[in-house]
Amino acid sequence: MDYFAKRIIPCLDVDNGRVVKGINFVGLRDAGDPVEVASRYNEEGADEITFLDIGASHEGRGTIVDIVKQVAREVFIPLTVGGGIRELNDIYALLNVGCDKVSINSAAIKRPAFIEEGAKRFGSQCMVVAIDAKRVGESKWHIFTHGGRNDTGIDAVNWAKEAYDRGAGELLVTSMDADGTKAGFDNELNAAISMAVGIPLIASGGAGTMEHIRDAFAIGHADAALAASIFHFKEIEINDLKEYLRKENIPVRSK
């Protein structure tokens, strides 16, 4: 019997200290307040919360640190921050206020040794490497940057293996083809990467229904599923999703 839970992770986009993209929760006093939104997800059974700092200008670094500091005083589940993390000092500042993991993307592509440096200093468990992949042929994906416009020419599965070898603790894999479509995850991509590495894979991009999330686990070999709008707009409630997954024999955390 397997009790080890598949994780459900809502992702909050934050800019300049506020949660952006409308959050459609009934009874929230302030849908832009990161503490209030994170607390609500925590109560609903989210297994972790990821903050994506979409402003991420260098001057704005202080704001995300402050957000995490406030959230970590109220919410006692793992917290991850992504967006604009370029230096060890950025990571240190976040971990120091109660953040558990950071997600790095372009900084790792630009300088892969950054993964090793972070893992050596802070431990692999807090180094998540984010991979934005787009299909370029039959069972072939490249890493894209700039919101999917720029093809780096790097093979996604090879890059995943390299990130793993360099000490990444988890991979956050976003399909640029599926992202925003609500037509399901790219399970072939996720399975190809998950089978190639010895660390957990967080599937992202394409969640539209509860069946999609089940398939991310059952077909895509994902260890966790991350989504934003379906949770924010209450298209799927985390409690209902977990109830459904349990019936589908996928182990999830109960309270």
């Binding site: 397997d2 009790y3 080890f4 839970a5 994780r7 297994d47 692999s124 468990q125 603790g169 988890e170 010895g198 660390i199 957990p200 260890d223 966790a224 955390r253």
Partner: peptide
């Protein structure tokens, strides 16, 4: 008893 990743990272009973 079945293939799993190490570290053991996540929620368990």
């Amino acid at each position: 008893d079945h293939p799993l990743k190490v570290p053991h990272m996540g929620w368990n009973e």
